[in-house]
Each structure stands twice: as C-alpha cells, then as structure tokens.
Amino acid sequence: MKILVLAETDGGRVSEKTLPAIAFAQQKSPDNFTVLAIGDSLQGVESLTGYGAQTVLTVNHPALAKPLAERYAPVVAHYARQLGADAIVATTTTFSRDLLARVAGLLDAPMLSDITALETTNGKLAAKRPIYSANLIGTFEVEGNPVVMTVRGPSWGKPEPKGTQSPVQAAEAPANIPTRSEWISLQGGGGGRPDLTQARVVVSGGRPLKDPETFEKYIGGLADALGGAVGATRAAVDAGIAPNELQVGQTGKTVAPELYIAVAVSGSVQHLAGMKDSKVIVAINIDPEAPIFQVADYGLVADLYQVVPELIELLKNSKG
C-alpha cells in the first residue's frame, strides 16, 4: 500500500497534529509513504523528515498561504494521482475533515473518517471507527482505490523516530488553483498553553464555573500548575464561560492525554465521547451521583472552590 500523508499546516507552518497520521503510515506501510505539506514559505518542514518517509514533498505558492479547502484540495488530488497513492491520510482535525472529504469528491474515492483501526481481510480493507456519537464502534468494509482516510489521533499516537532523514523535495503547485474562497481572519486559540489535542495533561471545566474569570482562575490555574492544556464542556462553551475551540466532546475535540482532570463536569455521553480514551481520568465534582465518576480512575466528591486552590498549592509546593 502506498500512502500519501497530508501534513496539517496553517499555510505558514507545519503542525505536530500531523504526527498520528505518520504513525499510521509507519504501521501500515513502513517503506512506502510520502508526506505532502502545502502552504506558502512553509516553516517547520524539518519536523516531518525524521520518520522514514520516502520523500517529504512541499508545495509553496502565494495562493496557498491560508488553509482553504477549495485551494488545497486540487493540490492533494494532483499529487495523489501522480504518486499513484492507494491511501490519502491525515489526522482527524477540522483542517483534514474540511479538506480531505473534498479531495475524496475530486478523486471519486471512498472515504473513511476518524478511524481507530484498519485491517485487510480477504483483500478488502476493513476499518473501525466510532459511530452514534462514539456510543458504538462500527466496522466498515471499503472497496475501490484510492481510499481517503482521516485517522483518530489518540488511536495512532506518535511515530517512531528513524535514524535517517527523508529528503525534502519542492514540488510545483498545479495550474489553475481556484481562488474563489477568500480567507479573512482567525480569532482565538493560543494563550501560551499546550495544544489541547497534543497535551500530556488536560484540565477541563464545566458549567458551574460561572464566568470566564472564574473558569480561568480555577481551570486555567490548575492546568498551569500541571503544565497542561485547558478544555471545557459544551455547556460551559454555550454559556460563554470558555471559548469554542476548548470544547471537548462529540461536537468538539477528541483528546486522550496521560491525565485528564474533569472539574465540575457531569459527564454527559457527548463529553465522554471526546475524552474517555484518556489514560488516567480524575473527576472532581460536588455531586456524588455525577456520571463522570463511572469512568474516573480517581474521584473526589468535593466543592471545587475549596479543593482546586488546595490542589494548585500542593502541586506548586511539592514539584518533583
């Protein structure tokens, strides 16, 4: 199987979110995969060269300075055809969901979204993926070539570093990139904390945190004490307490950190869908009946306003 891995970029820089897709390629086709990175004056390409890819292709063009699906899709389709790729793969994110389904449409190729496992049985590819808001796991058989796939980050983890460096090859953008869609702005994100989907520790807060200041003080404070990222429930986001991009759950992000601390999070099915693959789950909730305790490794029934400051203090005073 020849795999084309699409690197995630914001048009200017390669994102580490690409790594699970490279881990997937290493497992499924260790000697035969190529990485494609698209943008304009792309930075960080060297972060892709240490994992055994045959080639890291870079396509730089002023029309590709922002990650617009309408502009990127023909580039991906062009190189998928030229390389004769059997699979076109990226880590599941809003970037890849937006772009790769358009690529599948251009290539008339079947697509599997957010897969957690892939096997070949009787010459047919069969993939597992969460369905019905991750309440169930479905097995899907797919026929046809190529196949487009997004792979669920937490299921594939990080790729193994290799001793050799993959060659970086600058490639031309195909002619006639459509430029109808126009990028205007991006608001939010950042804040100096680790990326939610990549962080080793995630601290999430729910609706009881009252307002943005309280949320930042308690949830942000605990996250900082652990060097972690901040997450939020849909209810907290809907109430305007936390920004949209922090939402963990079925309609938000899927995370699987080493440590997930849920503070005043009841544990709705749709929230659990986004975090239940975490290695260790801690729940702090004043309601002893909260469903979150059914999935938590460690549960503390307590008032967050009392115990979170205690916890922050304890972590700060006993580092190492």
Binding site: T94, S181, W183, S185, L186, G188, E245, K253
Partner: peptide
C-alpha cells in the same frame, strides 16, 4: 468553528 478558533471566510 475550527480547532484553532473562529475562522472567517468570504465565498
């Protein structure tokens, strides 16, 4: 609504 925040496009 993207993973990186609210992106605005004109199409």
């Amino acid at each position: 609504e993207t993973d990186n925040g609210i992106e605005t496009l004109r199409i």
